[in-house]
């Protein structure tokens, strides 16, 4: 079985974002780009499954929509352990565009399991995975917090409100994964970094797709009023303040 992991290239999650051109574009100055945290966990789980020969997973491919400037993120995924990569050479303008491009690029590759992170830490859309399932006409499962292969069958646990469901779904399918899928993201070792240089990256040109959405402008959150401090000796006063001043309890 073959696994595909879709990866997104996002600013390091500690970045203090700033915007330029009348707040219509992200100021990319000084930004360090990383693999989207959930995609990194997906990749880690895919590699864990491949390491276990009983799963029958034979390869892990990463796919990404982005211009040449995002190559370092792809190389990082290869250094962590992916076997090869597909890059669609286009600007990821919106989720629909990205999902359409990824679907087109992989539709004849017969992946059994397609993993997508639950959201990207930049646009927080939570949509690409579900869209790919619809474009490729295959099943999808969302909020996946564990994935294993038992006797050739995918066993998934999915978070529901107030609990979880253990379920099976026949391949091929898209799993949209969240926290829990892997404990810690796998880190590239020196050997992996060396090997990544010679791993194949297939670059495909985008097809014509009209995005459905566009960002008109970004805004910074409203700044909160300064913190009011309460003397720790009379910490109990806080409860009174919450009740009578803030009126939230």
């Amino acid at each position: 079985m073959k696994i595909l992991v879709c990866i997104s290239n996002v600013p390091d999650t500690t970045t203090k974002v700033k915007f330029v051109e009348n707040n219509t574009k992200l100021d990319t100055n000084g930004i360090q780009w990383v693999i989207n945290p959930w995609d990194e966990l997906s990749l880690t789980r895919a590699l864990e499954l491949k390491d276990d020969s009983s799963t029958g997973i034979t390869s892990v491919t990463v796919a990404h929509v982005g211009e040449a400037s995002s190559e370092p993120t792809i190389r990082k995924a290869l250094a962590i352990g992916a076997d090869n990569a597909i890059r669609v050479n286009g600007e990821p303008v919106d989720a629909y565009y990205v999902a359409a491009q990824l679907s087109e690029a992989v539709k004849n590759e017969n992946f059994d399991i397609i993993l997508c992170g639950i959201e990207s830490s930049d646009h927080n859309g939570s949509t690409v995975g579900g869209m790919i399932s619809e474009f490729l006409d295959i099943a999808s499962v969302s909020a996946v917090s564990s994935l294993s292969i038992e006797n050739g069958e995918a066993v998934i646990s999915r978070e529901i409100d107030g609990g979880k469901e253990i379920l099976t779904v026949p391949v091929p399918f898209v799993a949209v994964v969240q926290k829990g899928i892997a404990k810690e993201p796998r880190i590239a070792a020196m050997r992996g970094i060396m090997m990544a240089r010679s791993k194949p990256v297939k670059v495909v040109e985008p097809i014509a797709v009209d995005p459905l959405t566009s960002v008109e402008a970004f805004e910074m959150p409203e700044t909160r009023a300064a913190c009011k401090f309460i003397d720790p000796a009379t910490a109990g006063d806080l409860i009174d303040i919450l009740q009578n001043e803030a009126k939230v309890i």
Binding site: S126, G130, L212
Partner: peptide
């Protein structure tokens, strides 16, 4: 809703209805 169920369904609806999604 922007919860587990909403996140599971909104993207498929987007493709089927060719409808832009505003999430969250």
């Amino acid at each position: 809703a922007n919860n587990n169920t909403g996140k599971a369904l909104a993207p498929g609806l987007s493709v089927r209805l060719k409808a832009g999604v505003g999430a969250g």
